[in-house]
Simulated scan of single mutants.
Amino acid sequence: MVIRRAVVTGASSGIGEATVRVLRAQGWEVVGVARRPKRLARLAAETGASTIACDLTDPDAVAALVAELERTGPVHALVQVAGGARGTDSVEQGSIDDWQWMYDANVLTTQRLVAGLLPLLRRAAAADGHADTVFVTSTAAQSAYPGGGGYNAAKAAESMLVKVLRQELHGEPIRVVEVAPGMVHTEEFALNRLGGDVAAAESVYDGVAEPLIADDVAELIAYALNAPRRVNLDLVTMRPLAQAAQHLLARGTLHVRTDD
């Protein structure tokens, strides 16, 4: 039996960290990739995963990452979670620096990883039957909202990149999966977006009955990777039950309507 090896980005927190933990529990070999070596060291100690510290917005660092992965073993799956949002300004008032960072972190990082790792994924697919790519985008790629212009644009671009890649890999045994979560309560996403303002970050989730958590997304990613190789989940949009649409969020207890 082949033990498959996955590279999971954004592994120092949130969905990326949860994905490392879930895949390790299911017997995968995992390489967790993120910028923060101390968090990665803790994750490695707790899960047995391998880790590599890397700033994915740095082309030279990504090249070194690819070389290290090639040196240390096959790559059967890429799970691209790294990215993020900065700011909630209007298009008119938007920070060019924030917008540039979001494009670099969400779009160019994804392209660099695909370009660097596809030769390794093809090698694994040829040897073991198939390989996988999974990209975590966002419902922000699907629905615009005021204050979301930079993030909407970056995630829409990443989502389109994934769709093009699936067509370009047509006929090859490499799955291309997109997972687009809605509201996920993680420790850092809203905090980073809102410039470290803890109160503002927590207010995003105030009163929401059970937003998604990182484990929910990680379990879906694991299903996509473990599904029979004939099955490709082109796009899975997942939201908490309390979020019927990007702009339609129930706060307070969910309850059945009555005629009273």
Rank of each mutant, 00 (worst) to 15 (best):
V8Y: 03
S12Y: 05
S13Q: 12
T19I: 07
R21Q: 14
R21H: 07
A25N: 04
A34I: 05
R36I: 11
K38R: 15
R42Q: 14
L43R: 07
A45D: 15
A45G: 14
T51P: 04
T51F: 08
D58N: 12
D60L: 14
A63G: 13
A63W: 11
T72G: 07
H76F: 08
Q80C: 08
G83C: 01
G84P: 01
R86Y: 05
G87Q: 01
Q93Y: 01
S95A: 10
D97L: 03
D98N: 12
W99G: 05
A105Y: 04
Q111S: 05
R112A: 09
L113H: 05
L113G: 07
G116I: 03
L118Q: 02
L118M: 11
A125H: 07
A125I: 03
A126N: 11
A131V: 06
F135E: 01
A141D: 04
S143H: 13
G149H: 05
K155N: 05
R166P: 02
V176R: 02
V179K: 04
V184R: 01
T186P: 04
E187Q: 15
G196F: 11
A201W: 06
V208A: 11
A214M: 01
D216F: 04
D216R: 00
D216M: 08
V217I: 15
A218P: 00
L225C: 03
P228T: 09
R230I: 06
N232R: 11
N232D: 13
D234A: 14
L235M: 14
V236G: 10
V236A: 15
M238H: 03
M238C: 11
A244E: 11
L248K: 15
L249P: 00
R251F: 06
G252N: 08
T253P: 01
H255R: 14
T258Q: 14
D259W: 12
